[in-house]
Design a protein around this nucleic acid. Structure first.
Lengths: 195, 195
DNA sequence: AATAAAAGTTACTTAGAGGTAACTTTTTTG
DNA sequence: CAAAAAAGTTACCTCTAAGTAACTTTTATT
């Protein structure tokens, strides 16, 4: 029973992330599931209810995803920082669900307070706090010039986030974009590494 | 005659940027203009036609805006860079049309090739190229450590762009966000300034 | 001032999306 | 296995947004 609901939510995520709330039709979702539109109403009492449940689902998926990241050791040197960054970017760019969540947040971020808060959390706060920890550790270890680790984390992650969004729009340029990301990481390392 | 059409386009920009293409109703636009929906059809043969004209209009407005920027002298030292950056950010954050264009591009960037290209141009390419020129000049003058000016321009502008988007979502945090922007600029200056 | 074009109105059609009711099939479970 | 709950179907209703036609008012133009 939970499986059916989950299948619906996955399909809904796919459709909503492509067409947005207003553009998405319940028929798109039901067709894509191979059931009739009316069958959806056995699980959700309205389009709005489905939407709200989807946001719950996204929030939950996302926090699980973030929690799983906190199991990964925090990098404490430049090589590990690069390695973990690239691995994370790779995942983020190719995992279908994560991609859909990102698109959905992007196109629906002005719909309501909840979407807006989720977008900020997803695109800025959480990433920043993860890398702040890394930079704090690196300062402690003396491999990073002593500065404000939070600001540095933002300066490190914001360009990457921008390029990930660019890749969502123009996926054919992925190789080029990955090169730019690497160049950014290398320049950042060169500049802030202690000698 | 051109004025009426322009008024319609301005109103359409306002409505579409708040509700997106699918969510926006022709009634929203006509009501907001104080005319009937049918009157709109004297100027545009369909919603889609109005939309396409709006994108033309946005493209044109935008390129004029960019051209007017090219009259401003390119900064060639750190103080001027900061000054011009902040002035530009101030304008960008408060000019209603620019704000609407930004929101529209954000929420409709996946609709078609045209919107996607415009988003990349608006959010990345054009800003980058402007600041690349500034950094090239500053390297020439010897006030900026010799590095890749294009990469640097991206690293300088991307965090600012991210914070502008944040401000669009959470305008009540503007003061805080402006502080963060200044901190970013100062940190960047401190790091790349030749001594 | 006369008249033609532009801009607007009212009243309508049409299509399609959300949503419901009544019935059937499938799945669970005592 | 029987029955009840879940999941699905068909056929419908309703509402509303896009779009049109016929008519009126406003605005330019000679």
């Amino acid at each position: 029973m939970k499986t059916t609901k989950n299948e619906i939510l996955n399909t809904a995520l796919s459709v909503f992330s492509q067409k947005g709330y207003e553009g998405a039709l319940l028929r798109d979702i039901s067709d894509s599931l191979g059931i009739t539109k009316a069958a959806l109403y056995k699980h959700f009492k309205s389009k709005e209810a489905l939407w709200n449940t989807l946001i719950d689902y996204v929030e939950q998926y996302y926090s699980e995803h973030i929690n799983s990241l906190s199991n990964i050791p925090i990098p404490d040197n430049w090589d590990k920082l690069k390695e973990i960054s690239l691995k994370q970017i790779e995942f983020t760019l190719h995992d279908e669900t994560v991609k859909r969540v990102r698109k959905l947040l992007t196109i629906e971020q002005y719909r309501n307070e909840r979407m807006s808060a989720l977008a900020t959390k997803h695109f800025i706060t959480d990433i920043e706090s993860r890398f702040t920890k890394a930079f704090e550790k690196m300062i402690e270890k003396g491999v990073l010039k002593c500065t404000n680790p939070e600001l540095l984390a933002f300066q490190y992650t914001a360009p990457i986030t921008m390029l990930i969004h660019l890749c969502d729009r123009e996926s054919e340029k992925e190789a080029e974009i990955m090169k730019k990301i690497e160049a950014h990481i290398e320049q950042f390392t060169r500049e802030y590494k202690t000698k």
